[in-house]
Structures are given as structure tokens and as C-alpha cells.
Simulated assay, not measured.
Amino acid sequence: MKFDHAEDIIQWTPLWQGERFPNGRPKVPEGVLRRLGKITLEEAWGPLWSRGYHYQFEGDFKIIHPDKVMVGRAVTAVMVPKRPDLHETLLNYGHEQEGRRGFFNQWVIDSLEEDDVVVVDMFDKIYQGTYVGGNLSTAISTRTKRGGAVIWGGIRDNQQVMEIENINVYFRGSDPTAIADVTMVGMNVPTRIGRAVCLPGDVVLGTPSGVIFIPAHLAELTAIHAEKSQVRDVFGFIRLKDKTYTTAQIDSTWSVSMWQDFLRWFERDERAEPYRHLTWEEELESARRSESDGPSVDVRL
């Protein structure tokens, strides 16, 4: 076997058509990451759920900075309880064949790039399952600038970690013991976090409610759907306040005249300026078909 194997990562993520890191991990553009950092959990969840991605969210975490949003590209790892023969084989292989240093968790953190998030299945181990403490969290901060970690297991040195402002850490529990009696069996492989599945390169969106893993090939689409929902809400609130439309009209499939009203507002109102990269031809055409052929499904999701 090989840790962090490019050929495997490319095979696991065939739907991603953009740039990749040298190890094959999808490299969702920074601009898309910044856009996803401005959306809510539910706005990210909707487009994924409607496309059959039903196991992308996990909310049963403690959070170092519960008032902050975390977004970045996943670097994954899978740990298992220590079995001596397997442990020595894999540790020696990493040291001797791949030139890695230190323990398994250090290998992962030493590989991080800017905007990365460590995503680790520690099989919910907390006692002697503390994947990071103050030192490694500082290393994550230095390497990722804005990233963090999602750990289905433990951490230590919480008071030190809380002082690191530019990253966030989602974890299951805390313990003063150091990491021990665990073996890494995969690095940048498909990883289970509670009831969610994460692939290397997924966009990790950490919110006060929990973490959602957005497949790389759906990242920009998710941002677009969320932004469209946001700006439609801004317009809807305005028109409800001035009593132009009823709540039933705003919450149902819009008519052609409503879309034309929205587009005039969208082109002129300063509140729509941050969303002017969006296009609406599909929605307007759908409304025209609806009025010609009968009702159609709302295209927001």
C-alpha cells in the first residue's frame, strides 16, 4: 500500500474536472471557498440532499470556536486500534519507504496546504485518542492559515487551542492523555465521520450546528444555489414589506412578471451588487415554460 496515493485519489474523485494538487486531491478554487464561507448549513445541505447526497452532515461535536465558521479542503485520515504487527509494518513503511517523520498524526499535518482542514476518523476514541494538542494545532494554524480540523475522537491542551484564533477544531471530547495505541491505515482515503462520508478534497463547511462535507465537484454549484436563495430572500423581504406580493406568491414558483420585477431590481439595487455574478436565464425560461405548459418544479434546489 501507499499513503496519500495520487492514483487512488483521482479514481475516488472522477467527477472533479478542475485543478488538482500534486497528490491528486481536488483543489477547489479559493474564490469558491470564500463564497461557501458566507452561506448557512441549510443552504449547503439542500442542493446536496436533492442530488442524493444524504450522508454529508454530522452535528455531534464540541467546537473550539462555536461562533466561527470554518471552511477548507479536506485532508483525510483513518485510524484504527493498535494491532502490533500491522502497526509496526505501516509505521516502518512510512518512515523507511516514504521518508515520513514522527507519528501518524504528524504525517498528516506535515502535508497540509493553505485552506486545508484535517478530517480524521479516530473511531470516537478520546482517552489516548487525542489527535492534536497545542503544538499540532499551532502547526495546523501555520500551514493552513484559515483551516482547522474535524476529529471523530479527542483533543488535548484545549486552553492552548482556544487561543489560536485563525482556525477551528471540531472534536468529540477532551483528555489530558497523549495519543497512543492507534494506527493509521489510510491517508487521503474515503473517511467516515459519524454518519457522514468525506473524500479527500471535499469542501469542509463547519458551522455552529456541525459540519457538512461538500463534494468538490458540487462546490461551486452549491455556492450558486445558496447565493441565489439569499438574494431572492432579500428581494422577497422588500416586496413583502411594501405589500407588492403575498407570502404565498413569494414562497411559490414565481410568475414571469415576478421574475421580470426581480431582474429589474437585481440590476439596479445596491443590495444586489454582491450577487451580480449570478445569471438567471434558466429560472426565467422555466417560468415561461410553466405559464405555457402548466406548473413546474421550483428551480431553487
Rank of each mutant, 00 (worst) to 15 (best):
F3W: 15
H5Q: 13
A6L: 05
E7H: 07
I9V: 07
I9R: 00
W12G: 07
W12V: 10
P14Q: 06
P14R: 06
E19T: 14
E19Y: 08
F21K: 06
F21M: 11
R25H: 07
V28K: 12
V28F: 11
V32D: 12
L36T: 14
L41W: 08
E42S: 15
E43Q: 13
E43P: 07
A44N: 00
L48T: 02
W49M: 12
R51L: 04
R51F: 04
Q56S: 11
Q56V: 13
F57I: 02
E58S: 02
P66L: 02
P66C: 03
D67G: 09
K68V: 08
M70T: 07
G72M: 15
R73K: 08
A74P: 03
A74G: 01
T76L: 01
V78P: 00
M79S: 10
P81A: 02
K82D: 10
H87C: 06
E98N: 02
G99Y: 01
G102V: 01
F103Y: 06
S111T: 12
V117R: 10
V117Y: 11
V119E: 11
D124S: 12
K125S: 11
Y127T: 06
G129V: 00
G134C: 01
A139R: 10
T144C: 13
G147R: 05
A149Q: 15
D157T: 00
V161W: 02
M162L: 09
E163L: 09
S174E: 12
I179H: 14
I179V: 06
V182E: 04
M187A: 02
M187D: 01
P190T: 00
I193H: 03
R195W: 08
L199P: 02
G201R: 03
D202V: 00
G206E: 13
A216E: 00
L221F: 10
E227G: 12
Q230A: 13
Q230P: 13
V231D: 05
R239G: 03
D242E: 15
D242R: 08
K243Q: 12
T246I: 14
T246W: 11
T247C: 10
Q249L: 06
I250W: 00
T253Y: 10
D261H: 12
R264H: 14
F266L: 05
E270I: 09
A272S: 13
R276S: 15
H277W: 07
L284P: 04
E285K: 14
E285A: 14
S290N: 15
E291L: 07
G294H: 06
V299A: 14
R300W: 11
L301C: 07
